[in-house]
Simulated scan of single mutants.
Amino acid sequence: MKIIILGFGAVGQGVARVISMKKDYLRSKYNLNPKIVAVCDRSGAAIHEDGLDEELLLETKTGKGKISLYPEYGIPGMDSLQVLDEIEYDCLVEVTPTDIDDGEPTRSHIIKAMEGGKDVVTSNKGPLALSFQELADCAKTNNVEFKFEASVGGAMPILNFAHENLAGCHIESIYGILNGTTNYILSRMANEGSSYEQTLKEAQEMGIAETDPYQDVEGVDAACKIVILANSVLNLPVTLKDVEVEGISRITSESIALAKKEGLLIKLIGEASPNALEVSPRLVSQGSPFAVEGTLNVATLKTDLADEVTVVGKGAGSVETASAIISDIISIWKRRR
């Protein structure tokens, strides 16, 4: 399978690293031989029809900061849409930074690939939260696979789990912690008694929170994931503007301490159902499945046959998120065969 990776930040590098690590395993178990034939970042691209060396890609990005400086096959200044025209490929892995204003350039990348008959895997929440139905319709029209497990919960298996393992069930609602940064902050505040401002600063210093943490702490990131779950799992044609959103920036150490005295924790919870699309701080029992700490994500799917089913997993991380992307690539390979 010939793969193009657009975006070579933490997730894109994770995909290259996992392919390097798992190449023999993928070949022996699935007869799958993934070749990265092109990679693009803001500096330009590296392209080679026989496949680029994954470790050299990682060394180039880490050491030189620009994928266009890849030896012999680097092309400074080449943009992502040019890359899609330049070389033959089977699957686009779109992992450029998320834009929640218009979903670009990811939306254009995905549509161009699908209109060219190529399968697409993405971790990018922006275009899914804004234009899910358009992208799903484009995939159907062009008879291509469109997979996005990594867009919700990183390594936490939820989309494919809902569609495959719970295929015989009617899923009524989904309820959970869908943002690792806010869960880390609230967990630390509960354990240490620290203030929101102090804990946020610590999370930023550790690289858990972004320099501009707005999308995480104000609930926007979790809201994007609620939209994806609502569309993909519950078949609700909604967008980001349909979600009621409240973040955690007004949570105080005093309110967390008061909740603890009652055996409760404050968590940022997202809910998707035909009657509710919401992200807000809520009280949960200290003994419940939602009492997870650190950057873990957790979600409960309420079904007609299996009652409530809960999944837990790491919501972030380079290799962790890449594991979901590789899972989607394997799924596409199986279906194509």
Rank of each mutant, 00 (worst) to 15 (best):
K2F: 01
F8K: 11
G9K: 11
A10G: 08
V11M: 08
V11W: 08
G12H: 02
G14Y: 03
R17S: 09
V18C: 14
S20P: 04
M21D: 14
L26Q: 09
Y30F: 00
N31P: 00
N33A: 08
N33C: 03
I36Q: 07
C40L: 10
D41I: 05
S43V: 15
H48L: 06
G51W: 12
L56T: 09
L58R: 09
K61D: 01
T62N: 03
T62A: 02
G65R: 02
Y70K: 14
P71D: 07
Y73C: 02
I75D: 10
P76H: 03
G77E: 13
L81M: 15
D85K: 15
I87P: 04
I87L: 07
Y89R: 09
V95I: 09
P97D: 13
P97H: 14
R107H: 10
I110C: 08
I110Y: 02
K112L: 12
G116H: 15
V121A: 13
S123D: 15
L128Q: 01
L128V: 01
A129F: 06
F132N: 12
L135D: 09
L135M: 13
C138T: 10
T141W: 11
N143Q: 15
N143I: 13
V144F: 12
E145H: 06
F148P: 03
E149W: 05
E149V: 03
A150I: 02
S151P: 01
V152D: 03
G154M: 01
E164G: 02
A167D: 08
H170Q: 07
H170L: 03
I171W: 08
I171M: 05
E172P: 03
S173L: 12
I174T: 06
Y175T: 03
G176V: 13
G180M: 04
T182E: 15
N183T: 07
Y184L: 06
R188Q: 01
Q198T: 14
T199D: 00
T199N: 01
E205L: 06
M206F: 03
I208V: 10
Y214F: 06
E218V: 09
D221Y: 09
A222D: 10
I226M: 04
A230M: 06
N231E: 00
S232P: 01
K241L: 10
D242M: 12
D242C: 09
V245M: 08
I248Y: 00
I248L: 00
I248D: 03
R250E: 15
S253L: 05
E254A: 13
S255K: 11
S255R: 07
G263M: 13
G263S: 11
G270E: 02
G270R: 01
A272N: 05
P274R: 13
N275E: 08
N275H: 06
P281W: 15
L283E: 13
Q286H: 13
P289S: 06
F290Q: 14
V292C: 11
T295L: 04
V298I: 08
A299S: 09
A306M: 10
V309W: 10
K314H: 08
A316T: 15
S318L: 02
E320S: 04
S323M: 04
A324D: 02
A324N: 07
I325T: 13
I332E: 00
I332G: 00
K334A: 02
R336K: 10
R337T: 11
